[in-house]
Amino acid sequence: MNRRFCIPLFGLLLGILLGLLVRFEIPAVYARYLSVAVLAALDSSFGGLRALIERSFSSRIFLSGFVSNTILAALITFLGDRMGVNLYLAAVVAFGVRLFQNLAAIRRLLIK
């Protein structure tokens, strides 16, 4: 496997290992925000992988997208709770659709 993929995958495994080793839990009230934020982070990560495979990866775009999407998703959820509107659904739908689109694109690129 290309080193380009091995190191990020190693980072993923390292993060998982770190999460398993560090018994860290967030307060219950923030669990929903973290859920949506993780979904946004997943979307950004799959988008980055897709760009990496397509050789159009830009670290600036990736990092800015990763951070901003994550924060924005959590912020939308927070605002939705304060306004009494389920705005997090919008984030879930948007990121969910993009996630599947990215997965489909990655699948096609890998098959080709």
Binding site: R4, P8, F10, G11, G15, R23, E25, A28, S45
Partner: peptide
């Protein structure tokens, strides 16, 4: 690129584990 992906995926993995543990505890 490698570093940014390494860091972001590491953060993502950590957050996923934390989230799973939190949801399980909740």
């Amino acid at each position: 690129t490698t570093t940014s992906l390494f860091i972001c995926l590491g953060v993502l993995g950590f957050l996923v584990v934390v989230l799973m543990r939190t949801q399980g505890a909740l």
